[in-house]
């Protein structure tokens, strides 16, 4: 494993490289380009970068209009604003007309840290999943984040990309091929299938190691495309393992746990336990303190396995 890198850093660099090979790409930001890392693109392609100021709704509508004229706009801000404050514009101006706009948001989840609950988006996957025509990517590391940016540009329609603020372990080699719509089995196992997304993938890998020490064989599957869900892999591993744990830095409602439970309830009823934020808002704190407090660590994932024997 190499050094830790934030997925937002990878996003910024990938966007700049995408701009070099695709002149239809334009980037809009809402006064956060230094934080979202769209500043990389802004410096390289000032004629195709538009700071829209602190006006997320307008940024979204303007992007829709530009897409209607053949551009491929990436719009960026923090996840809490890009999906929540912005929901009506995303729904009406982008998803319903199926326009080619990428909603690339950073600072998702609790790992925003000290800014506290107002800036910790725990509902964004839920909001974006509910929209027809939307594709939802939650990259697990910097390598996948970069690939997701390029893949998003190939899709003719709306894509939501969820990036994180903090540095996270790089789990993939640089030549890793990200296939949209395909869950990636990182570790095979037969006692429990751990499905994870985003920053929780590296925690899931650590949890599998902890469980291994306890004689439990855990499979770890990176579900970096939440929508459309790779149902085949989800069902196959639920069948193989008989127990499922879902892990996400998101509310227990409407995210990874929800889509996996929905699929398994219909196709392969399986006991499922969720590692997710349990219907509460976050608070200020260090990212690692918050992840511990809200039970989103490798240890918490490993502990969840014990619940399967309790019934």
């Amino acid at each position: 494993m190499s050094e830790d890198i934030a997925t937002r850093e990878a996003y910024g660099l990938a966007l700049k490289d995408l701009g070099a090979v695709n002149d239809k790409v334009v980037v809009l930001d809402a006064d956060l380009s230094g934080s979202t890392k769209t500043s990389n693109f802004a410096q390289a392609y000032p004629d195709r970068f538009f700071d829209m100021g602190i006006a997320e709704t307008n940024m979204t509508n303007v992007a829709a209009g530009m897409a209607a004229c053949g551009k491929i706009p990436f719009i960026s801000t923090f996840a809490v604003f890009g999906t929540g404050r912005n929901y009506d514009a995303v729904r009406q101006s982008i998803c319903y007309p199926n326009l080619n706009v990428k909603i690339a948001c950073t600072h998702a989840g609790l790992t925003v840290g000290e800014d506290g609950a107002t800036h910790q988006s725990l509902e964004d996957i839920s909001l974006m999943n509910g929209l027809p025509n939307m594709t939802v990517f939650v990259p697990a590391d910097a390598v996948e984040a970069r690939a997701a940016v390029f893949e998003a540009a190939k899709i003719d329609g709306p894509v939501y990309l969820r990036f994180s603020r903090g540095k996270t372990p790089v789990i993939y080699p640089e030549d890793h091929v990200f296939i949209p719509g395909k869950a990636d089995v990182l570790r095979d196992g037969h006692n429990v299938a751990i499905f994870a997304c985003g920053v929780m993938v590296s925690e899931a890998l650590k949890a599998a190691e902890l469980l291994y020490g306890q004689g439990v064989s855990a499979a770890v599957i990176n579900v970096s495309t939440i929508k459309p869900l790779d149902k085949e892999t989800v069902v196959r591993y639920a069948q193989k393992c008989g127990n499922v744990i879902t892990c996400e830095e998101h509310s227990i409602y409407g995210g990874l746990n929800a889509v996996i439970c929905q699929t398994l309830a219909e196709e392969c009823p399986t006991p499922v336990r969720a590692v997710a934020v349990n219907d509460v808002f976050g608070q200020s704190g260090k990212p690692d303190q918050l992840m511990s407090h809200y039970h989103l660590t490798a240890m918490d994932i490993a502990k969840k396995y014990k619940e399967f024997g309790e019934k």
Binding site: D47, G65, M66
Partner: peptide
């Protein structure tokens, strides 16, 4: 919302 989209079209035209 349409006003913003129209602005986006005008901005694309200028670009």
């Amino acid at each position: 919302l349409g006003v913003g989209a129209a602005v986006g079209m005008a901005l694309a035209g200028k670009t």
